[in-house]
Write a protein that binds this DNA or RNA. Structure first.
Lengths: 192, 192
DNA sequence: TCAGTAATTGACTTACAGGTACAGAAAAAT
DNA sequence: ATTTTTCTGTACCTGTAAGTCAATTACTGA
């Protein structure tokens, strides 16, 4: 009962996510958010409580989406090396295709907030942990099947791959051309 | 002639650098800077022109320092692998030892400004280029001397190492313990 | 010692960030 | 039709970001 919302909260969170992603948290204003969502500031505060709460929802939406993407990319068809290569390539080309070169909202938020904000830190870590685990089981699979060298420390290599991903997202923020990022992805895979 | 400054501008730039490093550009206020430098806001504007100009000086100071550090670390004594390992270890332990977990000002600034700010982007890129070149010549040296595998693409591996460094600086912003970062450094070296 | 120059302080200004309050509008329940 | 509930838009409020300015102070050279 009561007057129904004139906007879809789910859509609004996605739009907010895109704005935070483009501008970062500190540089995004309530007025800017209201404009981006096409609603008044009053509605924004009524619906979401405030800038920070909306950011929390936006970040969570991003994290959930990314977890799903990581899972499905790494569990796709093909050999272990094929899947690893394809995953890194998709990541690189996706980041490069974004005209705003926004990189990764999780990584950007980690850098912006750091350990100072325990909540953001914990939630971004959960994506990192998830990604690392997915890498680890893939490495294990490849090593057991004989596709990868048998002297690898699965956990350590998984951490290294996570770091590669994080680094690529960071470089995506300022690389002009595609060459360096592509060659990083290539070199990483070829060393396995 | 005229009244002499009551503070040392060089020192002030370093103090400003440390504050920007801790808080990021957007979250650092002129008043906060003035307090950190122990001078009035008027003096700050008189001496440096404004927040952005002071940031430019602070970032440049950081970049210069880092370039020197990279050069001296990678041209230290020992085998190529020893030097690479030592450089990564110093990086990891330095980042971990910082109680504020500030990571790297260049990386943080790249993430905060992105390609949107051509000036910051170009200057951070120059540190990245420098670092990559230093890695590349080290890899070449190690490959020629037979210390490293001869099938490596020097340039690509150098890019990969640069990416490893950037990733580690990013992870340093939120990792609680030292385990993951150390094992990333280990795994990276052992794959060469 | 005094004229000229440059630095310092702190008050002041403008703009906007972040949020609140309220009056009116649009639905559901009675 | 009226009440109740929730949403909407606008105006408003408080604090602060960023920067300016005037009066004062500290030094240098003639």
């Amino acid at each position: 009962m009561g007057r129904p919302k004139e906007f879809d909260p789910e859509t609004a969170v996605v739009q907010a996510m895109n704005l935070f992603w483009r501008q970062g948290y500190a540089s995004t204003t309530p007025q800017g958010l209201a404009d981006a969502l096409g609603i008044g500031k009053g509605s924004l505060y009524n619906a979401f409580g405030g800038k920070r709460q909306l950011f929390d929802l936006a970040l969570q939406r991003y994290l959930d989406t990314q977890k799903d993407a990581v899972t499905s990319l790494l569990n796709d068809s093909g050999t272990v090396k094929e899947r690893l290569r394809r995953a890194l390539m998709v990541l690189v080309e996706t980041d490069l295709a974004d005209p705003g070169r926004r990189g990764c909202l999780a990584t950007n938020s980690a850098v912006e907030f750091g350990v100072a904000d325990a909540d953001v830190a914990t939630r971004v870590q959960s994506l990192f942990d998830h990604t690392e685990r997915a890498f680890a089981s893939l490495i294990t699979e490849g090593r057991r099947s004989g596709e990868l060298r048998n002297d690898l420390d699965d956990q350590a290599v998984a951490s290294m791959l996570l770091n590669t991903v994080t680094g690529l997202h960071t470089l995506a923020r300022l690389e002009k051309g595609p060459a360096r990022m592509r060659s990083i992805a290539d070199a990483t895979i070829s060393l396995l």
